[in-house]
């Protein structure tokens, strides 16, 4: 691919190769972290948003975006944090949710703007699909995960938390 003919679509294709370091089966597009891509004066400008304010992986992900897009398109890349959009779990794509389930992490329930505590009850178990489960702790191994327990198969499982 030559730089002169690179399109926005090519940049999106390159972004599919940038995986989340904590959930390596998901790329940044599936996670809903990319809010804008533009090509201006031969530079790819990519706007992104972190999932959580204190996400320790943000600068690592930015670095991966720069390196991967540059490698695959040959373009110089500028990555900025978009402050006008905030991440919420509804931004996860359907593909992302399916991949999460296969990875053993329950997907977040879709919420209608305001998050209510009840939404965390009866989260389907990613192992046996039972809804006979309860929330053990709203905090897990990373900021974006909660811990649940399945009363049917006896497994403790993680869930990607629903976030407003």
């Amino acid at each position: 691919m030559t730089t002169a003919t690179t399109t926005i679509a090519d940049i999106y294709t390159a972004l599919e190769q940038v995986m989340d370091p904590e959930i390596p089966v998901l790329n940044v597009l599936e996670l809903g972290m990319i809010t804008g891509v533009t090509l201006y004066e031969g530079t790819a400008h990519i706007k992104m948003i972190p999932t959580f304010a204190a996400c320790p992986a943000v600068s690592y992900i930015q670095q991966n975006i720069r390196a991967t897009v540059n490698k695959l398109t040959g373009l110089p890349v500028q990555v900025t944090v978009d402050k006008e959009v905030h991440w919420q779990s509804n931004r996860l794509t359907d593909t992302a949710k399916e991949k999460l389930q296969h990875f053993g992490i329950a997907a977040p329930q879709v919420h209608e703007g305001e998050l209510r505590a009840e939404i965390m009850l009866n989260t389907p178990c990613p192992h046996c699909h039972s809804e006979n489960t309860y929330l053990r702790s709203p905090f897990g191994s990373t900021l974006c995960r909660a811990i649940h327990y399945c009363k049917d198969c006896g497994m403790v499982f993680e869930q990607f938390k629903p976030v407003e």
């Binding site: 959580f52 204190a54 320790p56 905090f139 900021l143």
Partner: peptide, 20 residues
């Protein structure tokens, strides 16, 4: 252990909010 993780996670959130 869950409480250990919870307070540690909340610490991370809070320090992230302070930084922002």
């Amino acid at each position: 252990m869950e409480e250990d993780i919870a307070f540690s996670s909340m610490a991370q959130d809070k320090i992230g909010h302070a930084w922002a």
